[in-house]
Structures are given as structure tokens and as C-alpha cells.
């Protein structure tokens, strides 16, 4: 079963995403900020990460940066930004940090789920081919 980590400081937003993913039969882990998210990735090795950017303690881009530099074993793990920051500079920064995709709020769940399903298919194919992330 595919595991997705959802990192989001707004409780209501997080709950909505979790519900949507769980309805699609995905196991969901939750974290309230970048620091918690990083700890969760290292200990639970999720298949996909969906993360907000603006969060206390550690923001999403810093979390991804930290992961790339100090934990390169996760560099193939798909990382999806889901943020209310819509300016182009931020989008470039997020994608430049190594994110798979950059989605903005308000959330279009159809788009989000299409993206997640696409990633799930890719992951399952890879596993079937004996490749590892």
C-alpha cells in the first residue's frame, strides 16, 4: 500500500487532504510543520510527500533542501508542494529545490488526486520492475 505524508500547519486544510487521500485508499501520515515532516520522512519512509510551504519552525522549501543535502537516499521520493503562495518566484524556488510539482490553494482535489494517482502508478511500475526509489 502506498503511503503519503501530508505536511500542513492549518489543521482544517490538513484534515480535508487526509480525508480525500484516505477515501482513495491511501495510507496517510500527518505532520504540522517542516521539522515534524522531516522526522516522519526519515523514520517512516513515505512513498510521496505533499507539503505546504509557509509553516512555523521549518518551512516546506527548507525541509526539501535539508532532505536533498543531508538525506540523499530520499532524492527520488516524489515531493508535491501544495501552497497558498502563488507568485512565480516562489514556484520557481520550490521546483528548483527538487519538487515533483507545485500546486496552489485553493485546492482542486481532482487535480491533486490525478497527480497522486499518476505518481502511484509510476511507483507501482517501478516496484514491479524491481527498481527502488
Amino acid at each position: 500500500m502506498i503511503t503519503v505524508l501530508c505536511v500542513e500547519d492549518e489543521r482544517d486544510v490538513r484534515e480535508l487532504i487526509v480525508e480525500e487521500l484516505e477515501d482513495a485508499g491511501i495510507r496517510v501520515l500527518q505532520a504540522e510543520n517542516g521539522k515534524e515532516g522531516l522526522a516522519s520522512i526519515i523514520s517512516h519512509r513515505p512513498d510521496i510527500v505533499i507539503s505546504d510551504i509557509t509553516m512555523p519552525e521549518m518551512d516546506g522549501i527548507s525541509m526539501l533542501g535539508e532532505l536533498q543535502i543531508n538525506h540523499p537516499q530520499f532524492s527520488n521520493m516524489p515531493f508535491v508542494f501544495l501552497t497558498a503562495l502563488c507568485d512565480k518566484e516562489k514556484m520557481i524556488e520550490g521546483l528548483g529545490a527538487g519538487a515533483e510539482t507545485y500546486l496552489t490553494k485553493p485546492i482542486d482535489f481532482d487535480v491533486l488526486m490525478a497527480k497522486i494517482n499518476g505518481l502511484v502508478v509510476r511507483i507501482e511500475n517501478r516496484v514491479a520492475a524491481g527498481m527502488e526509489f
Binding site: D12, V13, K105, D108
Partner: peptide, 23 residues
């Protein structure tokens, strides 16, 4: 940028909840 962010967050909740209800 922050204003946009501040409006988008509650909008995301409203829109997200509405989408959930529709589904």
C-alpha cells in the same frame, strides 16, 4: 504576497470542504 496567501488559506478550506461535500 502574504495578503494573497492569507486569503487563499481560508478559501482553500471553504473550497476543499465544498469539494468534499460534492464528492
Amino acid at each position: 504576497a502574504m495578503t494573497s496567501h492569507e486569503f487563499r488559506t481560508p478559501l482553500a478550506i471553504i473550497d476543499g470542504a465544498a469539494q468534499r461535500l460534492m464528492r
